[in-house]
C-alpha cells in the first residue's frame, strides 16, 4: 500500500472531518445536518467493525475446535453467539430474546461483576500496608471512608458518616478536579496532535 493511502489520506480525512465536527459542536450552521449524517455514518462503520470482529472470533474458535484445544469451550461459545444473533434478529423487544437476555446474559454478567468484591478484598489485604507516611495516610483515609460508609458505624457514632462524607466532598473532590482539569488539557493536546497529523502512533510505524 502506498504512503499516500497509508499516511496522507487517513491524516487528511482525520483533519477534514475532525475540524468540521469541532466547528459543528460550537456553531449552529446550515452544515449541521451534514454533521448529523457524519455521526450516523460513523455508527454504521463501527457496527461493520463488529461484523469483522465476529468473523475473526468465529475463525479463531473453529481453528481451536479443529486442533481439539478445549474444543468444547469454543463450541459452546460459537453456539451461544449464533443462537443469540438468531433469537435477537427480529427485534430486541422480542419476548424470547428478553427471556434469553434476563436468564443467561444478566446472571453471568452480574456474577463476574460481583467477583470485584473478592478481588478488592484480596487487593486491600495485600496492598494497604503502612510502608511509608504516604501509604499510612492512604490506609487511614481508606479505613475511615469504608467505616463511615458502612451503616454499622452509626451504631457507635453518627460522626463517622460525617467524616466519610467530608473526605469524599473535600479532599477527594479537590484532587479529582485537579486531575480532571489536567486530563482535559491533555485531551485537547492529543486532539490537536491527531488533527494536525503530529500524533501518528495509532496509524502504526514510526510516523515518517
Amino acid at each position: 500500500m502506498s504512503i499516500f493511502a497509508k499516511r496522507t489520506l487517513p491524516l487528511a480525512i482525520t483533519f477534514v472531518f475532525g475540524f468540521f465536527m469541532v466547528v459543528d459542536f460550537f456553531f449552529s450552521t446550515p452544515a449541521s445536518a451534514i454533521a448529523a449524517n457524519v455521526n450516523r455514518a460513523f455508527v454504521v462503520v463501527a457496527n461493520f467493525a463488529v461484523i469483522t470482529a465476529i468473523g475473526t472470533v468465529t475463525l479463531m474458535h473453529i481453528r481451536k475446535i479443529q486442533k481439539k484445544e478445549e474444543w468444547y469451550n469454543s463450541l459452546a461459545l460459537l453456539a451461544v453467539l449464533y443462537l443469540t444473533i438468531a433469537i435477537g434478529w427480529s427485534s430486541a423487544s422480542d419476548p424470547t430474546y428478553l427471556w434469553w437476555f434476563n436468564n443467561l446474559f444478566v446472571p453471568l454478567e452480574t456474577t463476574v461483576f460481583c467477583l470485584l468484591a473478592f478481588y478488592i478484598s484480596s487487593a486491600s489485604y495485600r496492598v494497604f500496608k503502612a510502608r511509608s507516611k504516604e501509604a499510612a495516610l492512604l490506609l487511614i483515609s481508606a479505613v475511615l471512608v469504608m467505616w463511615g460508609r458502612a451503616p454499622i458505624s452509626a451504631v457507635i457514632s453518627e460522626g463517622f458518616a460525617a467524616i466519610a462524607d467530608w473526605m469524599m466532598a473535600v479532599p477527594n473532590t479537590a484532587g479529582m478536579r485537579g486531575i480532571v482539569i489536567g486530563i482535559g488539557i491533555g485531551v485537547i493536546s492529543i486532539g490537536i496532535r491527531t488533527l494536525l497529523g503530529i500524533e501518528r502512533g495509532h496509524l502504526g510505524g514510526k510516523g515518517e
Binding site: I179, I181, G182, I183, I185, G186, V187, I188, S189, I190, I192, R193, I198, E199, G201, K206, G207
Partner: peptide
C-alpha cells in the same frame, strides 16, 4: 491522567509531539 497522553510523544521522541506536550503544560 495526562502522563498517558504524553506517552506517545515520549516514546516517539518526535520534537513536534514533545512540543505539544510542552504546550500542554503551558496551558495548564
Amino acid at each position: 491522567g495526562e502522563e498517558l497522553f504524553a506517552a506517545g510523544a515520549y516514546v516517539s521522541k518526535d520534537p513536534l509531539q514533545l512540543a505539544a506536550v510542552v504546550g500542554q503544560d503551558m496551558c495548564k
